[in-house]
């Protein structure tokens, strides 16, 4: 059912049948370390290159989620997946062996929200029995794509985030599972003219604020309707801004707000500055932490919104600003 301006409420909820999260060594040493299904000592994730490593993250996350749900690739109708690399090479090379029809997505770090939204719409519309929604990122491949070679000595500002090495995957379907998706709010591209790609929290906070505001408007609820409002990778700087921006619009979310980028690392001990980032950050935190909290009913209703900064090295070098986007997914307990 179409709700408000940008939202959908599913008449019959789409169930998250199972979830899997895999992550690198630094994430394993972080506060969520013991929650992941698989972690890797090898920074190349058993590949020869960063890109192969990230492809392996996706391959393993998909394999584990199917194993946990006791399903075979033949039972999956579609995969919705994406990553941060040019032309989505981690997705293509990681998932091609499964021979499952696929939609490759690019939503920067908001990809998991996009994958969950489109996957849920596909299942709710009756166009698939089961789909996989997933996303990945890798510190090495992201640094290479967006910043400097890893061995190059430089200083990162306090507002910079640390790309998470990890991948999260869920299987969506109509039968009962560990949680259910009851609605979505699809975000718009929001640009407040920030040009600093090392302060992505500030670039994305307006988009997150816009998406949350629209969700509250469309469903006509207050922030208290949610046990948690969880952004993807705003980090400490973005969190401050988001809460302030929504206060200006008349909503106080300081009690409910949580950020995957803040949860996944111990910024003091692990030297990650503003927090974690990347598609893998929200995907793996969602699959390994948030869904577990919902499954054991510690949280009953959560607004999950991965946030993306829409830039490339080309747009950045050509002087463009860094717009943001965020996609809300309403997740409730069974």
């Amino acid at each position: 059912m179409i709700v408000g301006k940008q939202s959908i409420q599913f008449e019959q909820a789409v169930h998250i049948i199972n979830a899997a999260g895999v992550a690198g060594k630094k994430e394993a040493e972080g506060p969520l370390g013991n929650l992941f299904d698989k972690t890797y000592e090898d920074p190349y994730i058993n590949g020869q290159t960063w890109e192969e490593g990230e492809a392996n993250l996706q391959k393993d996350a998909a394999a584990i989620v199917m194993e946990k749900a006791k399903m075979t690739p033949e039972q999956i109708r579609y995969i919705f997946s994406g990553d941060l690399l040019n032309q989505l090479i981690a997705t293509s090379f990681g998932l091609m062996d499964y021979n499952i029809p696929i939609f490759g997505l690019y939503g920067a770090c908001s990809t998991m929200g996009e994958a969950l939204s489109l996957g849920a719409m596909t299942v709710a519309g009756g166009y698939a029995e089961h789909v996989i929604a997933m996303a990945s990122s890798h510190f090495g491949s992201a640094e290479k794509t967006f910043r400097f070679p890893l061995e190059y000595g430089n200083q990162r500002p306090f507002s910079a985030t640390w790309t998470v090495t990890g991948s999260g995957a869920v299987i969506l379907g109509k039968e009962k599972g560990i949680a259910r998706i009851t609605g979505i709010t699809t975000g718009k591209i929001v640009d407040y003219g920030v040009k600093d790609s090392m302060n992505m929290g500030a670039c994305m906070a307006p988009a997150a604020a816009d998406a949350i505001y629209q969700n509250l408007m469309d469903f006509d609820v207050s922030p208290e309707a949610y046990d948690r409002i969880i952004t993807g990778d705003l980090g400490y700087v973005g969190q401050t801004i988001l809460i302030e921006l929504l206060k200006d619009k008349g909503f106080d979310i300081s009690k409910q707000h949580m950020d995957c980028g803040i949860e996944i690392f111990d910024s003091e001990r692990q030297d990650t500055h503003a927090g974690g980032s990347g598609c893998g950050c929200s995907a793996v935190t969602f699959c390994s932490y948030i869904l577990k909290q919902i499954e054991k009913k510690a949280w009953k209703k959560v607004l999950f919104l991965p946030t993306g900064a829409l830039l490339s090295t080309i747009s950045f070098n050509e002087g463009k600003s860094v717009p943001g986007v965020a996609h809300c997914v309403i997740v409730e307990c069974e």
């Binding site: 306090f158 003219g193 920030v194 500030a202």
Partner: peptide
């Protein structure tokens, strides 16, 4: 907004 961001970003 940019001025505000500058103000809340740790230096």
């Amino acid at each position: 907004y940019n001025a505000y961001v500058k103000q809340v970003t740790p230096t």
